Computed example of a mutant assay.
Amino acid sequence: MEKMLKKRKFGLIGKDISYSFSRHYFTKKFKELNLVNHEYGNFDFQNINEFSEINLKEVAGFNVTIPYKEKIIAFLDKIDAVAEEIGAVNTIKITNDHKLIGFNTDYYGFQESIKPWIQSHHKKALVLGTGGASKAILYVLKKLNIEYTVVSRTPIAGQISYDQITKEVMRDYTVIVNSTPLGTFPDVDKCPTIPYEYLTDKHLLFDLIYNPDKTTFLAKGEKKGAKIVNGSKMLELQAEKAWEIWNL
């Protein structure tokens, strides 16, 4: 009985995360499940090196958000095969002997939330952004046999810049995924600089952002008849997968 009531602490690692979906989601979940010995908090770091100041004996697991999904890997004892292939971690399980194991559940959340929207003509995708979140997106697109091109403000080999997105590119790439933070509350008027005038009802726009529900990116797509999906379902699915991992 004493072991059952031992405090289980979880938390979100990120930067400027007062808006945190995770804290709200898991606090509500713990209440609904009557897990009175569970609690969830934010670890809001201006620098990832602050992670080493945490007393890991008091924590059972973490979620990780931007901008630390790649930088956190250096602090882990082990990462699973999928997270290693993706190159980003958004979930950490802490074992009984205080080992840190990294996982990626973003890919699962994205995969399961975009699959119902994919149609036969969705053969190519533009992925806007190059951060840790985008890496999970690329992993899923590859699994779904959807050819992709990454769009960056500072493109490297194999990527393109925003000003290279022509009418022809927009015609060929009918899936567009925003993995940048552009448009997140409170900067709701911002959006990636793509030529929205070339969107059609053949396009599918997926935004990883969940606050607001409809970003400017999605609203501009909707006006052109495109199918639009925000990041809320992806977040819920990745959170549930993290919960599963923490309780293995």
Rank of each mutant, 00 (worst) to 15 (best):
N49R: 10
F51D: 00
F51R: 10
E53N: 15
E53S: 15
N55D: 15
N55H: 13
K57L: 11
K57G: 15
A60G: 12
A60Q: 13
G61V: 04
G61S: 08
F62M: 06
F62T: 08
N63V: 00
V64D: 06
T65N: 00
T65Q: 01
T65G: 09
I66Q: 00
E70M: 12
K71D: 15
I72P: 11
I72A: 10
I73Y: 10
I73R: 09
I73P: 13
A74N: 14
A74W: 04
F75W: 00
F75S: 05
F75C: 10
F75K: 01
L76G: 03
D77K: 01
D77N: 14
I79T: 06
D80T: 02
A81K: 14
V82W: 03
V82A: 03
V82D: 15
V82F: 03
A83E: 07
A83G: 10
I86G: 00
G87M: 09
A88I: 03
A88H: 00
I92P: 11
K93Y: 13
I94H: 05
I94K: 08
I94F: 02
T95N: 11
N96P: 11
N96D: 12
D97W: 04
H98C: 13
K99Q: 15
I101A: 10
I101W: 07
I101E: 11
N104V: 00
N104C: 01
T105S: 11
D106V: 01
D106C: 02
D106Q: 05
Y107A: 09
F110N: 05
F110R: 04
S113E: 07
K115N: 00
P116W: 00
P116N: 04
P116C: 09
I118H: 03
Q119N: 12
Q119S: 12
S120M: 10
S120T: 15
H121P: 12
H121S: 06
H122P: 09
K123F: 03
K124W: 01
K124F: 07
K124L: 02
K124M: 01
V127Y: 03
L128N: 04
L128E: 08
G129P: 00
T130N: 03
G131E: 11
G131Y: 08
G132D: 00
G132I: 00
A133Q: 01
S134R: 06
K135R: 12
L138I: 07
L138T: 06
K142C: 02
I146M: 08
E147M: 02
T149E: 11
V150I: 12
V151G: 02
T154K: 14
T154R: 13
T154S: 14
P155Y: 08
P155I: 08
P155D: 13
I156Q: 15
G158N: 13
I160T: 11
S161G: 15
Y162H: 00
Q164D: 13
I165N: 09
E168C: 06
E168A: 15
V169N: 01
V169Y: 06
V169S: 07
M170S: 01
D172R: 10
D172M: 08
T174W: 11
I176T: 07
V177S: 10
S179L: 09
P181E: 08
L182V: 14
L182D: 06
